[in-house]
């Protein structure tokens, strides 16, 4: 029983991370209607910036805030300067651009900071409150940070007109323009926010998996799965989906088939869920007319 609890707890921790990443993906999806494959690498890059700031002697929380700000600006600039010319390009051309961004970020991070693994500090105290090694303060912190981000995002999208305008711009750009929405800026804003969320995710992940240019690759896959399981257009669903995938991965790995194939099986279960519920657990099926 103790062991099972431990597995679930550790699943929840990785789940919190996946949820963080999933939130970033949902953010981009809700505000631009695309899935950004470079999301993980952008988060990784931002985490390196945070690392560099902390190395330069800046206190953690100031570096944390600065990184979010830098990431937000970076995301905004990427949309303005790199993706804007492609606003009318076919979807697959955009996918290729995301792949291009992914390899550029990965390569530049490797060039600037090398591929050796680095330690990244946690803002939370060391040790665990239960005394059983069940969960650490950092893990609780990650869950809390994810919950806060989810709350802020939900309020933003549900209850502010700016959030509403961003959703409208993503769903039907032509109509949004006819309602006076500056669509192009909404997209840029979406990228900025997604990059900011990604940077938070990166800074939460890095103390656990350590910092290196490839740290987000595997996590992005889980985040992607989590976002889809929960319903890609639904921030709350994405967070739940992230946790589901995290726990599932741990239990499948421990009890069913061992660690070698746990990624595969977790993903197969995810796909199975999607076949039964094609819009995700909490997704809304959008009505289609011929």
């Amino acid at each position: 029983m103790e062991f099972l609890l431990q597995q679930i707890a550790s699943g929840l921790t990785s789940g919190a991370i996946y949820a963080c990443v999933a939130l970033g993906l949902v953010m981009i999806y809700v505000s631009t209607d695309h899935i950004n494959f470079a999301q993980g690498e952008m988060a990784m890059f931002a985490t390196y910036i945070a690392w560099a700031l902390i190395q330069a002697g800046i206190p953690y929380w100031i570096a944390f805030g600065l990184t979010i700000l830098i990431a937000f600006t970076g995301g905004l600039l990427i949309q303005r300067f790199i993706l804007k010319p492609l606003e009318h390009a076919p979807v697959l051309a955009l996918v290729v651009c995301f792949i291009a961004l992914l390899s550029i970020f990965n390569a530049i991070a490797g060039m600037l900071w090398s591929y050796t693994v680095k330690q990244f500090p946690s803002p939370f105290p060391i040790g665990d409150p239960t005394g059983h090694g069940l969960i650490s303060y950092h893990q609780i912190g990650v869950v809390a940070v994810t919950a806060i981000m989810l709350g802020v995002l939900t309020i933003f999208f549900r209850f502010t007109t700016l959030g509403l305008a961003m959703r409208a711009a993503a769903q039907n750009p032509a109509s949004a323009r006819l309602m006076g929405v500056r669509v192009s800026w909404m997209l840029a804003l979406g990228w900025g926010l997604a990059a900011a969320i990604g940077s938070v995710a990166g800074m939460m992940v890095a103390p656990i998996v350590f910092l290196d240019p490839n740290m987000m690759t595997g996590i992005l896959i889980y985040g992607f799965a989590g976002a889809l399981v929960g319903g890609i257009g639904n921030p709350g669903g994405a967070v739940v989906g992230g946790f589901v995938v995290g726990v599932l991965e741990n239990l499948v790995g421990t009890y069913l088939i061992g660690n070698e194939l746990k990624l595969t099986f977790a993903l197969i279960i995810v796909v199975g869920v999607l076949i039964l519920k094609p819009a995700g657990l909490f997704g809304r099926v959008n009505v289609k007319r011929v």
């Binding site: 051309a93 961004l101 550029i104 490797g110 060039m111």
Partner: peptide
Amino acid sequence: PSWAIYGVLLLLLMYVMP
């Protein structure tokens, strides 16, 4: 890094010929 060059190449190609 050659991967960065690869990425930039892809971006340029998509600009010119989406």
